[in-house]
Design a binder for these strands. Structure first.
Lengths: 322, 322
DNA sequence: TTGAAAGCGCTAACAT
DNA sequence: ATGTTAGCGCTTTCAA
């Protein structure tokens, strides 16, 4: 900037004014400055600007896996809102690992992101206290933070969705409905189990429940065990997209009623089409980001807790008879 | 840092030494400093550090769409390598828009990323010259840069893959093979057309070629037009994952031979399974990032051009008879 | 082993 | 309309 200033024969500050589009610069002078900028290939050093202004115009996003279809769509929605607000997005995958999650958040905070959007992996987020108190807002998406951390959240109606799915299968005559879900420590999995159980009432049978990490071999083993029972399940409720994939592969050939939580590409092209309870990851990400920017522009009201609706999409697999 | 220093009763520089793990600090002193850091909840301001040191420990990634399954997997691979090298990833979606691409790269450069990984959208990248000359390395993935920009590239064997796909269909008795590809301005699409054409030789018929943005309605219209020909195609070669999806939907019901470029989730569960020419986005992203870090650690050799192999995965749709 | 001082490139506050 | 000065929080250099 100094070089530009001397090249244009003006003071440093004038260059700064031009670069930032501040008023009060003679058009002729501005033109000379711009020309010098062009000639020298100058581009403002954002680090210095950040250091001086205290605002980085960046947002940090922590999700489970950038490559997961659900989360990458959510991330994309966050990106769009972030860009629209003139900010840059830093993102990282936690791999469902609380240690990595914390590390990522620490890294983001050291880089002084203006705000955080988090799909939490851990169950304790008290380590966020200092940052929150220091005025860095955070919004949690998909899952709430651990106890004692009161921030904005954007969740979906997990229990309600699970109830819908289960009732749907009940309505089609099923009485033995299995639930294949993720680890119970994951909030969404726990809530979905809850809704499933509530809908089943006294039909609930814990032998028809499997909750574990979505590793194909393990899920398949549990499913086989259930199918070998005296009164095996006639229908499946799968607790997330990845588990639905695994179950579909394990079921290969066998015609069995199935409703999955989370919609996915090609669900309509399988035969039968896969009936799902769909959330809207684009809305979730977008709303979370909007909430964050509302905080960044000074809103200090009490924490908001958005709960998005889900809907059943019938495609055939959920309407199969027992 | 100043506060920590006075809290610990030492000089600023000593705190700096402790924070950076520099040698030559008395263990007792270091302990006192660490304790003060803990107590005050101090965390180093990365912007200031960057300003002083000149290196940001960040890498910028420009891809077409963070939410696209192919690119999100590629991006995830880049993230993993970046993290392993202690760096943070900035990423952005270009939406296949050259203007947005350039804007993103400018933003990244203003933030002084140490290096760039780009899946280019535009055809002219001369605007990168100043950055490259200034020592910011760039690696292009999936598609090469425009003319005159000589940087490392990681591409796949597009023409070879298209030849494989076309020959596969020829070997199964097809003579009328249609090609549905992306806009010819996109390098991969052009190369795939080239391979397809080369494999067909005199069987090539331009009425069986459609190249346009993967908008379902348009692709479907072109397909319908071909099917209405006197001698309609008996097989389809689709030029990328999104077009494959569209074609599968358009074909619904109709049994027609199909080979798609790019593998995708559930290709094996459709009936018939979808035969594809598969690339490996994880390797592409990973190798590109490794290449970048090799440059960052001082390698100034001539630009490298990696070409990754592709392979046919037979699943049924490509083996259907005419 | 520890510290003092200079300065990275910019913007905010205050002249002129 | 333009310029001067101080200082953001850190690392580098040099000195003690």
């Amino acid at each position: 900037m100094k070089d530009v200033a001397s090249a244009a024969g003006v003071a440093l500050k004038t260059v700064s004014r031009v670069v930032n589009g501040e008023p009060g610069v003679h058009p002729g002078t501005a033109e000379r400055v711009r020309e010098a900028i062009e000639r020298l290939g100058y581009s403002r050093n954002e680090s210095a600007r950040v250091l001086r202004r205290g605002r980085t115009s960046t947002v940090g996003l922590v999700i489970e896996d950038l490559a997961d279809p659900f989360y990458s769509v959510l991330g994309r929605a966050v990106e769009d809102v972030t860009t629209a607000h003139g900010c840059l997005l830093l993102s990282g995958s936690s791999n469902e690992d609380p240690v990595r999650e914390r590390e990522l958040i620490r890294t983001f905070c050291a880089r002084r992101v203006d705000g955080l959007i988090v799909v939490p992996a851990g169950e304790d987020h008290s380590f966020l206290r200092p940052e929150l108190d220091a005025g860095t807002p955070a919004v949690f998406v998909d899952r709430p933070p651990g106890p004692g951390v009161d921030v904005d959240t954007v969740l979906c109606d997990n229990a309600g969705g699970a109830r819908l799915a289960t009732r749907h299968l009940l309505a089609h005559g099923h009485r033995r409905i299995a639930f294949l879900g993720d680890r119970p420590s994951i909030h969404t999995a726990a809530r979905r189990l809850h809704g499933y159980r509530a809908a089943l009432g006294r039909l609930f049978d814990e032998r028809l429940v499997s909750m574990r990490a979505p590793v194909p071999r393990d899920v398949r083993a549990d499913l086989d065990r259930m199918l070998a029972l005296d009164s095996p399940p006639t229908a499946l409720f799968t607790g997330n997209g990845r588990i639905t994939m695994t179950a579909l592969r394990a079921l290969e050939g066998r015609r069995m009623a199935l409703v999955g939580f989370d919609d996915f590409e090609l669900a309509d092209l399988l035969r039968p089409g896969v009936t799902v309870v769909a959330q809207d990851p684009t809305s979730m990400g977008g709303l979370a980001a909007e909430l964050l920017f509302r905080r960044l522009s000074g809103d200090t009201g009490p924490a908001e807790h958005l709960r998005l609706p889900v809907r059943v999409i019938r495609r055939g697999s959920g309407e199969l008879p027992p």
